[in-house]
Design a protein around this nucleic acid. Structure first.
Lengths: 205, 205, 205, 205
DNA sequence: GTATAAACGAGACGGTACGTCAGGTCTTTCT
DNA sequence: AGAAAGACCTGACGTACCGTCTCGTTTATAC
């Protein structure tokens, strides 16, 4: 991410170096406050106060409050919901999508939702999402589709990205537009039914 | 919508009635400013100034700026992207989804995106979306699926909502998370490919 | 008073006549609210609400909230603190000033203080005060001084207005600038001592 | 004054110190605007705009617009109208009262009048007036009276505060309740006549 | 060891917008 | 036509944060 300020590749320069403990306490404060007050109520001032830090210490690292949250979230994305590769495409997607659904259901989803929301009016956040959340997963997922076609499991002529849209689209749809009640309920059973439906197609054979 | 202030069912009460021209000029100003400055830059103060109206006149009708935008958008939703019913389910969805895709590509999408974004941190907006945008469409769409099953066009045992998720999910995915570049390009060709893929299924027969 | 709206000399005009009960309830509401919330917290809106009356009904009678208070206060000024005439000037002033002091100590003073205060920035109120509160009293008081000079009780060559200033000035001073603590304590004993001091002079004979 | 924000006794605290130039420009702006528009038309917003300062910069120092004016006025009270001490009590008061009268006639009076007016509904302002304007003067003036009694110039048994009320009361009376026309005309001749009257007493010897 | 340089907590600073309140005017319906 | 109700534009309120800017202090590298 461009606006990332963690600067792990920091050179040894003159002057006092940034304290990584300070950085961590800011990230922690941002997530905590977001979960407590809602992420729209997040302010740089509030984060600074909670972290016991001056405002300029934050502005030295990030340009605004949302970038902090983005950093905090993307830090362990790969760990939480990696793309799993199984014997068949079907099994690979079932397993991977279950992981994604699980993360959507939990605390991760509660943060990701406002983050994607904010991205609708924040271009740099949109780019950060594309880079850190989507691109890496797409890359691997496309390979799985292609391998499935090659092995004869999947129909020839399928466009990988459209396949992925059909599989993952519903998850985002349900995450962001919960049309019944307020709760996201992306259960494992839902994932299974979804995978079956899309793999099997809609028309009678 | 509950917070709707249009009050078309207004009874004859004492006191000066609300001027519908005033209401319209506020709605117009909100959309114009949103398109010009971006919807995150929308302020009640700015809308009031542009509409040539006092702030309290706005607060008498809506609780905040986003509710104005919501009202403005939902006013002609049914007109812009109705659910079309054709001879087959396949044709019905192809036609309906093309309309939705078209509206996403145009000005409507530019407004809907920030609106759905904001809804992630605004519960009443989320409910308004569910009620005015999703529910009505779902209702009819489910019927189309059931009819397709009854007629033998579609496989028995399909869960209508999952079918709809598989078809419409990708559209929202592409609208809200444009993973390549910044532009949404939900072309008619994309819709056709998507419909073919989902109806045909992924597996080799 | 020019801005007075009581219009007791009202001609028989066409249309519904003003209800004197309405007028009274407004005056009453104004004084009550002033005493309860402090006269700076007085608003036309609040008075209208308390009196169960529309705002325009008030504006039809008075130009602003302070004029209402002024009307209410001046209504019974002559009754509360008339200028008394006794055998000597000394006794006349002692008696009259005691009455004024008493009214200053009571509820009347609590209203008069803010009223005089407001008059410092409100010209029409200043004029109303001069006319309804001061002028009438001065007129009679000057006569008392002149009579005292004529009778030989008082020194020749005294300027009546200066005499009155020396006698009454201290009362206003104490009313408006209570330099010790917060309470006005214009006791009868104070009045007596004041009258003795001013009549007797300061210098040793 | 308690609400005073000038904080001249400022300790070395952390953080950026308040800029005294900013403070001065606010005081200046407040007085200028008051003189131009009248002190009732004074607004924090207006003062901020005129001083080229943010509103919060003002609220950080003073709780409301009147406190600014009070600070501005009390800053050089001792300089403008000090209590002068002459050979006799009579001469001391004549000289001191002439100074006060002069300040009442001039710009100082134009500000002091609304300030005392406002004090009638503003307790903290009332206290500030008592402390900064009255108390200091009273202290010294009482001594002058006592010295006059001791030297045999003045009658024994006089109560100093009543003497001061008789002398200064008329000045405030004339300042605040100009019963003839609108103008305060506390001329030197008026002061002389007043001093003569009060010192000489009213009764024929 | 003593500069020099940057990080740091604190908080002042000029701003913008918030949502509320009241002003005084106007437009309804009811009496 | 008066009255109550309430919409309307205006403008100020006092608050919260914004992102920038001094301060004095601390902690490192460089001379």
């Amino acid at each position: 991410m461009k606006e990332n300020a963690t600067r792990e590749e920091q050179k040894k320069t003159a002057g006092r170096p940034r304290d990584p403990r300070t950085t961590r306490s800011i990230l922690k404060a941002a997530l905590e406050l977001g979960m407590e007050l809602g992420f729209d109520g997040l302010t740089v001032e509030g984060i600074a106060a909670r972290a016991g830090v001056g405002k300029s210490t934050i502005y030295r690292r990030w340009p605004d409050a949302w970038s902090i949250v983005a950093d905090a979230v993307f830090a362990d994305v790969a760990r939480i919901a990696p793309v799993l590769e199984r014997a068949t495409a079907r099994e690979s997607f079932r397993a991977s999508m279950r992981l994604v659904a699980r993360s959507f259901r939990g605390q991760h989803g509660e943060i990701l939702r406002p983050l994607i929301g904010r991205a609708q009016v924040d271009k740099s956040l949109r780019l950060a999402l594309a880079e850190h959340w989507l691109s890496a997963r797409r890359e691997i997922s496309r390979k799985i589709v292609r391998r499935g076609i090659a092995s004869g499991e999947l129909r020839a002529g399928l466009e990988p990205d459209i396949v992925l849209d059909a599989l993952y689209g519903p998850l985002y749809h349900r995450l962001l537009l919960p049309y019944e009640g307020d709760v996201v309920h992306l259960s494992d059973a839902y994932i299974d039914a979804l995978v079956d439906t899309v793999f099997g197609g809609l028309e009678r054979k």
